[in-house]
Design a protein around this nucleic acid. Sequence first.
DNA 1: GTGGTCTAGACCACC
DNA 2: GTGGTCTAGACCACC
Lengths: 125, 125, 125, 125
Amino acid sequence: MVSFAGLRFDDRTPVYQQIAEHLKRQILLGTVQDGEPMPSRRELAAQTGINPNTAQKAYRLMAEEGYVRTDGNNGSTVCLTPALRTAIEEELTRGLVEQFVRDARANRLSYKKVISLISELWGEE
Amino acid sequence: MVSFAGLRFDDRTPVYQQIAEHLKRQILLGTVQDGEPMPSRRELAAQTGINPNTAQKAYRLMAEEGYVRTDGNNGSTVCLTPALRTAIEEELTRGLVEQFVRDARANRLSYKKVISLISELWGEE
Amino acid sequence: MVSFAGLRFDDRTPVYQQIAEHLKRQILLGTVQDGEPMPSRRELAAQTGINPNTAQKAYRLMAEEGYVRTDGNNGSTVCLTPALRTAIEEELTRGLVEQFVRDARANRLSYKKVISLISELWGEE
Amino acid sequence: MVSFAGLRFDDRTPVYQQIAEHLKRQILLGTVQDGEPMPSRRELAAQTGINPNTAQKAYRLMAEEGYVRTDGNNGSTVCLTPALRTAIEEELTRGLVEQFVRDARANRLSYKKVISLISELWGEE
DNA sequence: GTGGTCTAGACCACC
DNA sequence: GTGGTCTAGACCACC
């Protein structure tokens, strides 16, 4: 059973998006596997303290994006294909990097220094 | 006159550090020049809604780091040398990049993809 | 015993007509056979929640149309001949098709597409 | 300005779907053109008596289906391409015909009679 | 004003 | 219990 217990929200992004992002991160980390059952809307709402309607919106988004499937009245499960995993990885990477590049440029950091620092700080691959 | 009006704080970092960081960002962006007058402690507190004691602490930090000098009873001014500018730039860059590398590794992003995406997104230098 | 229990009414057509139509549909489906006893007026009213007067009106209509016969004090029975069955089928078919053609034309559907889609969707005869 | 005033809902289909369907019908009838402004969420809610949240849901659906585009804070407009028109026509036709075929089969109508009746009733193309 | 998000709570069908 | 729909009403940023 996928758990969202203890998930903290920031108020810059819609909560339903943050839920989807949290699940996507768990997927990439391997914490969540294909076929794993999702909590019910009510359960998710209880775990996170959000309104069941917001939970419903999150499920709708996740279903639209394809990695959660709702099975009639039998609850929802995570539903992954290799292509989906790759797409999620691409998206997450791009999101993080876009934000970083935006911040870096806004602060007029030098491209060269940034790249050299990343290499220095990254550690062993 | 340097202004901190409208500055928003996040709650992950002490407020007095955020004030110093804001000033450092302004310095790097060229918005703030050497010799420019700083607001008084009271003025800073009024502009940002923080406690005068916190303002005092921020001034102490900025003075210790060398880019703000208090002139007896004549208020404080920004005080910059090329070496200080470089140091500030180094620090800011390192801070941003460290955070980014931490996030990227926590999400198991691939180093190669990250570098190639940064190059793609950075745009013209 | 013919049953009307659970029958749901829409509010576009008089209820007594809907009762007759329901019986006719049951006849065509073979659920209701010649000679089968009908519920009493009161029984029909109780099964469907309608007013006994409306039940009476439905019986009058069904008797006029010929497929229900009232037997003195012995209640009513369904009363069918091959010709009646055909007439009922004609009427039901015509009703359904008329409504469909009206809708189709109101929405400017193309005759050709409609026919081809019906053939496609009808399945094995 | 597209209007939904006076639109009546049946309770078999979600209201937000009925709104989208109404718009699609208007598009096929030529009553609604590409680029035409849509009412605001609040306006739609007022015209039809539905809750602004349901109006929002309808807009989201229509945007997802591609024939309504929301333009920042400047309201929404109908947005049509020939391909979209065709898709809408296909969908509406198929929906109506599917329902009809389902009813016809449920009532054991004869395919031959149905086709001949449609031809008879359709009138001039 | 505009679109968008969220909570609170009711109600529905299906099991 | 499950998913899904809807109303009522607040609040947000952007203009």
